[in-house]
């Protein structure tokens, strides 16, 4: 009797499907907080060009509420800045939506790059996090994951930092806009570049990156000259990453 029981128990326990997640990706409140905290320095940089967006929105005739709503719903800096430049009466809706699509094509590449980690998350967690993906916190999240701190909620947390600073900056820019009507005077336009330069240092993984990065940089520079909008990011990102693959193959 005893042995039979033991056998059945054994069979039962080996039948129980183990959760064979090769890499476990936790999704916790602590991860959200960690992401938010670590993204604050970057969010300050985002604040700088959120002001720029607010100023442009004010010049385009949007109220603070309208501009803040756009920042909250769209959360895409480059696309919003370009939309403000295209804003007119009546609003060229189709042209703006099409431009938004083109400007944001880089997000396709960025989302794809998150897949190896996000695969372990439930679809609802992964796709709600995706809303909060902006260039800055995406890059920070990848750098964090590469350094071994793989927290599923990091993108959400860091995105919330960008989200909150971006909206506040938008409102400040609209209401107190005239004080910073020329951000270039203050060197604030460099905030964007500086943020990505520091993130690039964090992602650097040795001399093997030199060749693909050279390809990415040179093709982006050429594309920026000949193509409109932010196609250059898509072109450089594609060429550079494919160059890395061709080298390893």
């Amino acid at each position: 009797m005893e042995t039979e029981e033991g056998v059945t128990q054994n069979v039962r326990s080996s039948d129980t499907p183990e959760v064979v997640s090769t890499e476990e990706v936790p999704f916790t409140v602590a991860g959200v907080v960690d992401g938010y905290r670590k993204c604050i320095p970057i969010a300050l940089g985002v604040f700088a060009y959120g002001l720029v967006f607010g100023v442009l929105a004010n010049q385009a005739g949007l109220t603070a509420v309208e501009a803040a709503l756009m920042s909250a719903a769209v959360l895409a800096g480059a696309a919003q800045l370009i939309a403000m430049e295209m804003w007119a009466d009546p609003v060229p809706v189709f042209a703006i939506v099409l431009t938004t699509l083109v400007v944001n094509l880089r997000y396709l590449l960025m989302g794809a790059a998150l897949r190896p980690w996000f695969e372990a998350l439930s679809p609802s967690k992964a796709y709600s996090s995706a809303f909060f993906m902006a260039d800055e916190n995406w890059a920070l999240t990848i750098a964090e994951y590469r350094s071994g701190n793989v927290q599923g909620a990091f993108l959400l947390g860091s995105g919330l930092a960008i989200f909150s600073f971006w909206i506040v900056a938008t409102v400040v820019g609209v209401t107190a806009g005239s004080a910073v009507d020329d951000p270039e005077r203050w060197g604030l336009d460099f905030a964007f570049t500086a943020v990505f330069l520091t993130l690039l240092v964090g992602i650097w993984d040795g001399t093997g990156d030199l060749f693909p990065w050279a390809v990415a940089g040179s093709s982006a520079i050429v594309a920026a000259e000949v193509l409109p909008g932010s196609w250059y990011i898509v072109v450089g990102g594609l060429f550079g990453s494919l160059a890395a693959v061709s080298r390893r193959a």
Binding site: R106, L109, M110, A112, A113, D135, W138, A139, I142, T193, F196, L197, L199, L200, I203, W204, D205, D209, P212, W213, V215, A216, G217, S218, S219, A220, I221, A224, Y232, I233, V234, V235, G236, G237, L238, F239, G240, S241, L242, A243, A244, V245
Partner: peptide
């Protein structure tokens, strides 16, 4: 390889 390439492409021009 995408992250590095995209960030380089953002800043290079």
């Amino acid at each position: 390889a995408i992250p590095g390439a995209v960030i380089v492409a953002i800043v290079a021009p």
